[in-house]
Structure formats: structure tokens, C-alpha cells
Write a protein that binds this DNA or RNA. Structure first.
Length: 419
RNA sequence: GUGGCCGUAGCUCAGUUCGGUUAGAGCACCUGGUUGUGGUCCAGGGGGUCGGGGGUUCAAAUCCCCUCGGUCACCCCA
């Protein structure tokens, strides 16, 4: 074990092949799906002025205690992004694209917190944000897009939870009602929840502490505090999901940790993942966020999906497996290595993935390397071949044996074989 | 940020209870058996500041303290 300084910092890790290839493939699947739905990629910076994230709400833990903040050499107060919705909305206000604006993103986020399974200080998310329309069908489209993504990965044990927090006024009335409810028996709450009650009564509903369970169970339901307008919006979202045959569960206690959500909120959990962090993705409406960022008031809805957690769920379901061999052909050269240099170059230019050995190793060692590379075929050059202008083509997968071919036709033959 | 468990070779681990010869195994890796041919088999080999620092002791992987890292739960989220 190396000196701690030469290890990845706490809560971070290196992603090596084949996991790195799988991760890139997952983002590729995501990109295909969202671009097929008209979303265009946005690549925001990985850090912003701290104020951008402060707009997420001073009561959120993400802002209060998990931000990677620092002052840069120019004296600017900067924070590594803890999520990307804030950056996307800031970008929206800065560039004022025509509405509706449908954006997607993929990349790392940073939160300073204690790492555990499925929770890291640097973690990747993919997501979409749609700004402009208030149409409940847009909520449904956003949710459906995530759902189809999980389907494409081959996941079958994902649960969709939906809720409505109502409009800002409904939300305020509900928070007041919750405050009253919990205050009547305040001493029964856990100490942590009493503190949460003072800053954000909604999130008391999120508590997993056993002593809070009874009061949470008897708490009033958000759904009884929806205005007619918000209720109608929620009904239309549910009807749309039903029409799309997306199964969902209504979860009136689903509040989510970011304070900017209003009306529709949703979360995806995995049945295979009974750890505390079983949320693999989530999102909702944030109709007031653009205005809070100094942009024209613009409704928005979106989601973020955790790449690491999604991949863990893929593991649990045996879905979306890592790709196999990175090369098709392995060139074995016992004449010094220059032939391998030329042949691999020729093959690669023809689009054939090819690798070789180095340091002029023995034929046995090179053949072993060829076998382990996972390549389907070996191309062998020895003295005999060099003299006769031929190459040996050997099957590495089965017992098809080998044959001698003119070296001028090797690329064409391999292109046909590897079809 | 709080608490529990853990940290021995690249990987998975034994050895730690009751300190005591050169710290082991499997897998992986390298070489040879096979004077041109991998995958099976056989033989040999390289590789370890026992996470790090300090302490106790004639003697520490083993006991004590600190620290770093991992893991699980809480908080919270992806």
C-alpha cells in the first residue's frame, strides 16, 4: 500500500478498463435516447461562483455542509458543482436560448461528505433539463425518458415514485401544517429531527430514525394541501404516465433534498439495492429556480441519474455487462518486431483493432499474450514467412487451426473474417 | 460531522486469541519443459516498509496510543 499522498483522495477512485468502457457505453446509450427526444448537450464548467449554488437553498445539506469551496488566485469565491441543474439554469439565464430549451448533460459532481457504498465525493451523473413549458405532458416526457433509459440498459427492477409538492403557496401551507403537526409532540422527535423541524419541516418526513416513525406516519399528506391548479397538473401527469404504460407509485412523503422543487417530484429506486442509498435517480419541477438565478421567470423540469449507482444496479441485475476484448487481432512477430509495427499500422488504418507484444519476447510468450488479449485471430510472422512473403493466420477462439496467406492480402482476409 | 467493523503480495485471504526461528496459500505475473505456436498440465522464479507514525518489550503482523484509508449505519443524497 502506497503512501496516502499517492492514493486517490478520500471518496474518489480510478475507473479502469473494463469498467471505464462500460461507463462510457452507458453514457452513449443515454445520449442516444435523449438526443432522439430533441435534447441537446450542454457542457457547463465543473465549478461556478458559490452564489450559483447558494440559490439551491440555505437549508439544503448540499449547500450547508457538502460544498467544495475555495478562493481562487483572483480572489473569486468558487465551488465545485454539487449538481448540475444549478449550472444549467445559470447557463440558461446567461445565453437565453429560445424556448423550449431541452438540454442534457453528463459529468462529475462533487460533494464533501463521508463516503460509503454508492456515495462518493466525486460522482458522475447524467441528466436532462427542460425549460419553458408548464405542460404536464412535459413532466411525463421527462419521467418517461428516464424510464426508457433504464429499460434500454436491461433493468427490470426499478421502481418509480411520484409526488406533488404543489405550487409555492401550497407548499408553504403544507410546511406550516407539518410544522404544527410535529410541534404538537415535539419531544417525541429525535434530536436531529427537532433541528430539521426548525429549518425545513418537509425534510423531517425523510428521517429514517426509528423514534420519528410514528409521527411521520400520522403526518398530514401533501396531497390534501394541493390547490386545484396543482392538483389538476398532478392528475394530468399521472394520466399521461398511465397512458404511456409507465408503472408508478404515489409516495406522498417523497420530498427530496433540494429545496427548489415544486409540483411534480419523482425518484427511481432499485429493488435490488436495500442499502440506505437506494435512490438511483430523481428529479422534478423547479418553476422558481430561473427567477432566483436572475433569469426571466421560466418554469423547468428535469432529472439527474447517478451513474455509479445505476451501474451497481446493473451488476445486481446482471444487466449491461462490460464489453469484451479491446482488440480483434494480435500480431506475433519473431523476426525482431518491425514487421509487427508495419502490420498493426496497416490493420488499424483499415479499422481493425490490433495489438502486439513488445521487447522481442519468445514466441511462446507472444502467443500467450495473444491468447490473453482476447483477440479472435493471431497473425504470425517468423523467418519462414518473412522469406516467403506470407503470414500465418491462426484462430484463437476454437480449433479452426491456421493457414498461410500472402501478406499483401492480410487486411482483406481479416476484414472478411471479422465480419 | 457522529458511531460500529476492517486494513498482511497485483487480487482474495490464512497467520493476530495466549508476542518468539528466513511472514504463508490460491489466483495473477515471469521463465523453462516444447529449437517457430497460446488456451490444459508439470517444474522453477520474481514480488511484502504486515496502511503510516509513536510506544511497551530481550523480541511486535500479533499488545497500547495516534493517524490515514476502506466499509456499514445515522445525517443526506445520486
Amino acid at each position: 500500500m502506497a503512501d496516502p499522498i499517492y492514493r486517490a483522495p478520500k471518496g474518489t477512485h480510478d475507473v479502469l478498463w473494463p469498467e471505464s468502457a462500460r461507463r462510457r457505453a452507458l453514457v452513449g446509450v443515454f445520449a442516444d435516447i435523449v438526443e432522439a427526444a430533441g435534447y441537446t448537450e450542454v457542457v457547463p464548467p465543473m465549478f461556478e461562483h458559490v452564489e450559483v449554488f447558494r440559490r439551491l437553498g440555505d437549508a439544503t445539506d448540499v449547500v450547508r455542509k457538502e460544498m467544495y469551496e475555495f478562493e481562487d488566485r483572483g480572489g473569486r469565491h468558487i465551488a465545485l458543482r454539487p449538481e448540475q441543474t444549478a449550472s444549467i439554469v445559470r447557463s440558461f439565464g446567461e445565453h437565453r436560448p429560445t424556448l423550449p430549451w431541452k438540454a442534457w448533460y453528463a459529468g462529475p459532481n462533487f460533494r464533501y461528505e463521508r463516503a460509503q457504498k454508492g456515495r462518493f465525493r466525486q460522482f458522475d451523473q447524467v441528466g436532462i433539463e427542460a425549460l419553458g413549458p408548464e405542460d404536464p405532458h412535459l413532466d411525463a416526457e421527462v419521467i418517461t425518458t428516464a424510464w426508457r433509459f433504464y429499460e434500454c440498459l436491461g433493468l427490470r427492477k426499478v421502481t418509480l415514485l411520484v409526488n406533488s409538492l404543489g405550487g409555492p403557496d401550497d407548499r408553504a401551507r403544507y410546511v406550516a401544517a407539518l410544522h404544527d403537526h410535529f410541534s404538537t409532540d415535539r419531544d417525541a422527535l429525535s434530536e436531529d429531527s427537532r433541528a430539521t423541524l426548525a429549518t425545513n419541516p418537509l425534510r423531517v418526513l425523510d428521517s429514517n430514525r426509528p423514534e420519528d416513525a410514528d409521527l411521520i406516519a400520522s403526518a398530514p399528506s401533501m396531497l390534501d394541501h394541493l390547490s386545484d391548479e396543482a392538483g389538476t397538473h398532478f392528475d394530468q401527469v399521472k394520466a399521461a404516465l398511465t397512458g404511456l404504460e409507465i408503472p408508478f407509485t404515489i409516495e406522498p412523503r417523497l420530498v427530496r433534498g433540494l429545496d427548489y422543487y415544486v409540483r411534480t417530484t419523482f425518484e427511481f429506486t432499485s429493488e435490488t439495492f436495500d442499502a440506505a442509498q437506494n435512490a438511483i435517480g430523481g428529479g422534478g419541477r423547479y418553476d422558481g429556480l430561473a427567477e432566483a438565478m436572475g433569469a426571466p421567470p421560466t418554469p423547468g423540469v428535469g432529472f439527474a441519474l447517478g451513474v455509479d449507482r445505476t451501474l451497481m444496479v446493473c451488476d445486481a441485475e446482471g444487466a449491461f455487462e462490460a464489453p469484451d476484448a479491446p482488440v480483434d487481432v494480435f500480431v506475433v512477430d519473431t523476426t525482431g518486431g518491425e514487421a509487427a509495427l508495419l502490420i498493426t499500422d496497416e490493420l488499424r488504418r483499415a479499422g481493425i483493432r490490433a495489438d502486439r507484444s513488445w521487447d522481442d519476447r519468445s514466441m511462446k510468450a507472444q502467443m500467450r499474450a495473444a491468447d490473453r488479449s482476447g483477440a479472435a485471430m493471431a497473425v504470425i510472422v517468423g523467418e519462414t514467412e518473412r522469406e516467403s512473403g506470407t503470414l500465418i493466420l491462426r484462430d484463437l477462439r476454437g480449433d479452426a487451426g491456421q493457414e498461410s496467406v500472402p501478406c499483401t492480402s492480410i487486411t482483406d482476409i481479416l476484414l472478411a473474417r471479422l465480419k
